[in-house]
Write a protein that binds this DNA or RNA. Structure first.
Lengths: 351, 351
DNA sequence: CTGAAAGCGCTTACAG
DNA sequence: CTGAAAGCGCTTACAG
């Protein structure tokens, strides 16, 4: 099946390519009705479909963006991508999805190829390990936006959770109910990965603010596959915690797996607060008190920001946007008798 | 920042564009060492990055494919996409992800634009409502593969779960343990959506095969938002089921939400088997007996098949591939004392 | 071993 | 109101 081009249409309709092109781009300003009709008919008869690639080459826009995420299997990433895709679809853009798996080399390969393919911009959950490339894009004024993580020292717009606040909320929810021995478990690499670093920091500060001492052994940052053991260690301490903050969804899975296997009762034996609200937190026995992040708003904002850059509307300096976490009180810790009413305490997102 | 092109490199290196192009495509056969060096250096000095678009226009391949899924938020879709993306990445392809939301118009728009952008092929979870476009692509020999669903009467390669077998397994797991009053709940539109249609069919046949009568009221196929009510209806029946098959992950969420709210005890009051194994099925109290589908293998196979078509290796007729579901026995139904050993009964996927 | 020329399928001033 | 021409940034026979 030979592909039919604009030249074929022009011939068939007895007009020039230019005119057909005008038609396609809806520049009817000075177009005779019958010319329109002729072209319309030629297109119909030949089953012509414009080649977007050729147009992109000329117009220097592919109406396509790239998203480089750590791993699309994480619920948060999926939700962010969904929001981005929705936004893009409304603007007739497409999104190329890439999984960098926290691997700097993969990330670099994706960034390079995506740009070679002339995507109009890239949204990245950065590994943080390709500073040179990030910088190069910045220098070229190539539209990029970071999500979930930022890279210190780089002037890139970033969409982040207020992670300090998230762990503060978690700690406070415990202390408010009389807990003092609060552990924290989350995946490895807190130096590199913004949310992990900040959540640990926020935890520490909140502990201090509550007049509690920080026991370094109470903080377990480790590979997911070692978490069962980390939990063993944590609970075998001479003075073990009676409360645990699951630093993200992966950590929560591991904690629940552990408590189930060891028949540790929540909240009687152990109180739990999870950062990242997963769909089943509400269905669990007991329902898990969580700190939710507004994934959809964050994704939408990222897309919005990228579009501003693409359209050069925002030549202002790069900014960091912090989104508010939301505490969803459920039943995974024992409530002390206290003055405050029971129920959902929320703080609305600002963006 | 003016973008630097192959012409600039040629000038800078003192050679022709053709030679630079040869270099870029690693056709060194007859290239003098010093020519290579000169070009290499010019590229380095200018920070040249080839424009893939221009190449694609000429070579008629974008090394990009499209995936049109119903909704990336569904765990199954996410897993399939992850597998596809992995496969593509290994072959230096990219994937554009689209959410059709079971909306035929959205699907059509995506199909059209994706082709206009000259993607090399498309993997679709079809709505089934764009037969004309599907047919057109087929006629043009445009590479497409269907996943999860197929469209009757269309000769398109499709990757499907053996849905009949999945519900048969679910029914048998119940009957084997003495259950006879088995309900089925799943989302609406069983006429259109293959897995739903087939799961109902498989359920009916398995009931018959077990000598059980089919009570139409036991089958609830309804919008997700009406499922709570459907469950009410189901359990308010004069002779209500004591076992329910959740026809997919969404249905399972609704069932668990319902049982939790109504304080219905699983498995004492109600036995549950879920089709689609969700990550938390294993963590739930009680752990949910599930029929898993091999999402990753299915995604990989879809990508593999599409690549065969793209490379014209597979000009043979279109085929339907059925993947084997796997029964994972857990604790959401009461086991009768019986001869078979307890434990995980699996049937391996074949592909 | 390397270069000139044509071409991929469009768009866009510009001329008439 | 419409067309001829140049150009987007590459690749690819072909000639020398």
């Amino acid at each position: 099946m030979k592909t039919v081009t604009i030249t074929d249409v022009a011939k068939h309709a007895g007009v020039s390519k230019s005119t057909v092109s005008q038609y396609l781009n809806k520049r009817y300003d000075y177009m005779a009705e019958k010319t329109k009709k002729k072209i319309e008919q030629a297109i119909e008869e030949l089953g012509y479909q414009p080649n977007f690639l050729a147009r992109s080459l000329k117009q220097k826009s592919t109406t396509t963006i790239g998203v480089i995420t750590a791993n699309i299997l994480h619920v948060f990433s999926t939700q962010v991508i969904r929001a981005i895709e929705d936004f893009c679809n409304q603007h007739d853009f497409h999104v190329i999805v890439c999984n960098a798996d926290d691997d700097a080399e993969k990330e670099k390969k994706y960034m390079d190829m995506l740009r070679a393919k002339q995507v109009d911009g890239i949204i990245i959950f950065p590994t943080g390990d390709n500073v040179e490339t990030y910088n190069q894009m910045l220098k070229e004024n190539y539209p990029i936006v970071f999500v979930d993580r930022y890279v210190p020292g780089l002037e890139v717009s970033a969409i982040l959770l207020d992670n300090m606040k998230a762990s503060t909320m978690a700690v406070n929810e415990f202390t408010r109910n009389g807990y003092e021995k609060i552990g924290l478990i989350l995946p490895e690499n807190p130096e590199l990965i913004t949310p992990r670093r900040e959540r640990i920091l926020g935890y520490k500060e909140a502990m201090k603010a509550n007049g509690l001492t920080i026991n370094p052994e109470y903080i377990q940052s480790t590979e997911v596959k070692n978490m069962q053991q980390a939990l063993d260690t944590l609970l075998a301490l001479p003075d073990p915690p009676n409360a645990i903050i699951a630093g993200n969804d992966l950590a929560l899975y591991e904690v629940l797996k552990y408590t189930k296997e060891k028949e540790i009762h929540i909240p009687k034996d152990l109180g739990i607060v999870a950062i990242d609200d997963v769909p089943f937190a509400n269905l669990y026995y007991p329902a898990i008190t969580s700190i939710a992040q507004p994934a959809f708003e964050m994704g939408t904002k990222a897309a919005y920001l990228l579009f501003e850059k693409i359209n050069k509307q925002n030549t202002s300096s790069e900014e960091v946007f912090r989104f508010e976490p939301e505490l969803i009180v459920r039943s995974s810790l024992i409530e002390s008798t206290r003055n405050e009413g029971k129920g959902v305490v929320t703080s609305e997102g600002n963006n």
